[in-house]
Structures are given as structure tokens and as C-alpha cells.
Design a protein around this nucleic acid. Structure first.
Lengths: 237, 237
DNA sequence: CGACTGCTTGAGTCTGCTCAATAAAGGTGG
DNA sequence: CCACCTTTATTGAGCAGACTCAAGCAGTCG
């Protein structure tokens, strides 16, 4: 089914993602609807299909044997979930809210891309961006403080899903819970709550109540918080 | 000075890496020799060439403005450094020891791969493995303790560069310093030292003196340490 | 042989985690 | 529409894993 130029799909164009070509895929896949926390694929399943998000949000995650969880990526409308060359999914994926995806057989994709150089190029570009995103986040998780991670995260979300800026403020909807943000950033949910509160106290953001996103009030200050390092440990004295 | 393996390039075959085909690239590139800590490319440089490691070791890294550093990947003989579709390198790369690489222009690669489906496939596979490795490491950095990270790291190195096993022991040469291991795992070098000492005390490994690698003495125990979670906090009482 | 770099080990501190209690929302069914 | 239950967020107190700082000790190289 060709989904018309409603909101979500045009995002990939609006943001300037290279893979607008993927819109074609919507025609050859089947639509699936997912309830909140319903799982789409499991880590280790044989990777027969991949999915393009039409609306809602998907989280890709890995877990340790004792239940600790690390969210690898959030997928928003237009994103491809489960791209892989390997035989198995490298991570599980589940919906965060009511979500619909377009499910495409891998064989079909292979076929298509071998006939279309542009599709092939865009596929490479999508993989490349997935690498870049993961590697960027290695820096966050390995070397940044909780406050810095939150600041980076908010600006990333603003870039991907934020509303246009108005008089210096930008609204950033966050469809995931603070626990999930924690699982994305390698933090406890309490730490996420505290860091958000601190950034709000500093005037960088405003947290929407009930929690559903933030408004960036002072982008300059938020950007400064991305990279400020550990506590200056007393400015004077 | 740390010495490279005798026939490094056959490693890619021995380990069963899919990209043995890349061996061809060696014919069309120029050889570069690098001294320890000499840099190969800088983050942000325009990505005109990529490099295949012939001997030695390369570290790919990102850094924050205030000097904290995160090593994104170690590249051993046979690995490709600086694969990207983008215009700029996503990370800097420098040699850890005396290293030689084969430097290939990206345009040349593009050309070749458009004529050779197998090369193209292998390129995709290489990108896929780079994604997989980065995502696996997100779990390490986000959710694992220092001890677990070290255990995971040692087993990864054993898999990629270890000598064959002999009567239950496997020697794993480590061409990087403990500071660099720390920068790879998001730890301070002191923490690396302590975690290695602890694993040695537990009988899982033996640390080679002067530091140049480890011998895995009890693989079972080391594997257990990959996933044991935070301290059991008193087994009894 | 001396200077340097890298590793080890100890002491003290701090960031972020755990545990816990409270509050606020959302969903459900009567 | 309201009581009830569940889930999620907030906030505090205490703890601990990992960091920082610092001293001491090899090895290595010039």
C-alpha cells in the first residue's frame, strides 16, 4: 500500500535523509501493527525480513543473561530496522508505542537492489549512517558524564524529530520512558530524571508534564553541556 | 618492540573472514609505513582513501574537546580502516606499533566494486561486521562492569588474534598499552591493570611480563566473567 | 647510566547506582 | 464518573565501583 504524503514518511525527505528512495519499499511489503512493548524481532532470530517504520517508534536492544539491557538504537518513521547481511538479527526490536511498520522480505530487497544502483547506494548509505551513529555513541557511553549524555541525546532527538524552532525554542517529543532513555544511555532511570531536572534548573530545557518530551529553551547552553567534562570542582576559592 | 605475525594476510583466511577477496586490493594500492603513534588519518579529514592493514595494529578513535578519548576499534592485519560512504572520516586512526598499510583511493575501489559483485558483497559484509562490532560494544560500555569488559575484550582478542589452543591454554598477544585498552573499554588505565590482576588472581589468565599479552588458562572461568554482573555481595551470611 | 615511559598499588573522593518512599498519570471496570 | 490498581516519575539516603592523585618500580632507549 502506497501511503500518501501524510506526515511521517515525508520526514525522511524533510530531514534530508538520502534514502527517500526507500519509499518504494512500502509498496512491496506488508503492514504490521504493534502494540506498546510488543516485540517485532528477537535477537538471534533468523533475519528473513527487515522493516521500515511507518509511524510510532521502535527500540533495538541487546541484553545480558542477567537482565541488564542496552538499547542500541531508536527507530523513527522512515528508518529501517534489522538491516543486516548476516543470517541472524544482531539485536531484538520492540515497539515503544502504537507503531506500524512495513515488513519486507530480504530476498525481495536483494533482488530489487541488484537491479537498481540508486537503491543499492542508498542501502550502503543507510548502513553507513548506522555505523556512524553506533560509533558516535561509543564515545558517549565510554567517556561522557550522565549530564553530557542527556544533553547529547536531547540534541540528537531534536535533530531527528524536533519541531521547527520558534523564537529560540524547539519542542522535542520523546515517545520513550525515562527507563528506556536510561537503557539507551547506559544510565539508571533515576539518573535520567535527575539530569533532566538539573538541565531544567539551569534553564537549558523545560521538561513537559506529564513526561512526553522537552522544550529546548537555551540551545547554546545545552550544546555547552554536551562536552563540558566532569564537574569543574569549584570555579573559585 | 612488538613484532607482527609472520604471514599476517593469511589470517583473514584462517579466521574465516569473508573478505579474503580484498587481498586483490593490495595490488592496486601504495604501501605506507607508520611508526608507533604516527597518525594515518584524522577525524574530519576528507575521506579520499581507505587502508588495509598489512602488518602491525591501527587504532581508530574519537575525542572530546577536552581531551578524553574513546577508541572505536582496533584494526589488525587484513582489516580495512576508514571504510565510509560519507565525505569525511568518522574517526581518526593511528598506528600502535610499527605498522604497514596498503592505501587505496576510494574512487578506485568504487570502480572495482561496480564491476565485481563478489567484491561488492564482501564490502557489504565488512560494513556489516563493523556495525555488529560497534553495537556489541555499546552493551559492554553501557551495561558491563570493568571486570566484565576486560573479560569480553580478552576473548574478542583471542578470537581475532590468539594462537591456536594448546592443552587448554591460549596465548593472546596484545600490541596496545593498558592505557589504550582503557580508551577502548571506557576505563582508566589503573582500572585495567587492577582488573587484569584480579582475573589473574582468580586463575582465569596469566599476564605476560613485561606486559605484551595474556595467556588464557581457564577459558571457562573467563567466559563466566563476561557476564557475571555486579558483585554478588557476599555469597553467604 | 640516566631519563622516560608504562605498569602497579594505595588512599581518598565522587559520580552514578541501589533501595525505598511518595506522588502523579493512565487504564479498567463497576 | 469515580474508586482502584498499575505504571512511571521524583526525590532522598546510603553505598560502591571506578576515577583521580600520587608514589614507587620495572623495562627500554638514547
Amino acid at each position: 500500500m502506497r501511503v500518501a504524503a501524510t506526515h511521517p514518511l515525508t520526514d525522511s525527505v524533510r530531514i534530508g535523509r538520502p534514502e527517500a528512495v526507500f519509499d518504494r519499499l512500502d509498496a512491496i511489503g506488508v503492514i504490521k501493527h504493534l502494540a506498546p512493548h510488543e516485540s517485532l524481532v528477537l535477537e538471534g532470530d533468523s533475519a528473513n525480513r527487515f522493516h521500515r517504520v511507518l509511524s510510532g517508534t521502535i527500540a533495538g536492544y541487546k541484553a545480558t543473561s542477567d537482565g541488564r539491557r542496552q538499547i542500541i538504537a531508536f527507530f523513527f518513521p522512515g528508518d529501517l530496522v534489522g538491516l543486516t547481511v548476516g543470517e541472524q538479527y544482531a539485536y531484538g526490536a520492540e515497539a515503544l508505542d502504537r507503531t506500524s511498520v512495513c515488513s519486507v522480505p530480504r530476498t525481495r530487497m536483494r533482488e530489487l537492489s541488484s537491479h537498481s544502483p540508486t537503491l543499492h547506494e542508498d542501502l550502503l548509505a543507510a548502513l553507513d549512517r548506522e555505523i556512524g551513529a553506533a560509533q558516535e555513541r561509543l564515545l558517549w557511553l565510554g567517556r561522557k558524564t550522565a549530564r553530557e549524555r542527556i544533553a547529547c541525546f536531547l540534541l540528537e532527538c531534536a535533530h531527528r524529530c524536533g519541531t521547527p524552532e520558534e523564537d529560540g525554542s524547539q519542542t522535542v517529543p520523546l515517545p520513550m520512558s525515562q527507563l528506556e532513555i536510561g537503557d539507551y544511555l547506559g544510565l539508571a532511570s533515576e539518573t535520567v530524571s535527575r539530569a533532566l531536572a538539573q538541565l531544567a534548573r539551569d534553564g537549558a530545557i523545560e521538561v513537559l508534564r506529564p513526561f512526553s518530551g522537552v522544550v529546548i529553551r537555551d540551545r547554546r547552553r545545552l550544546e555547552a553541556a554536551m562536552d563540558e567534562g566532569p564537574e569543574p570542582l569549584g570555579t573559585g576559592l
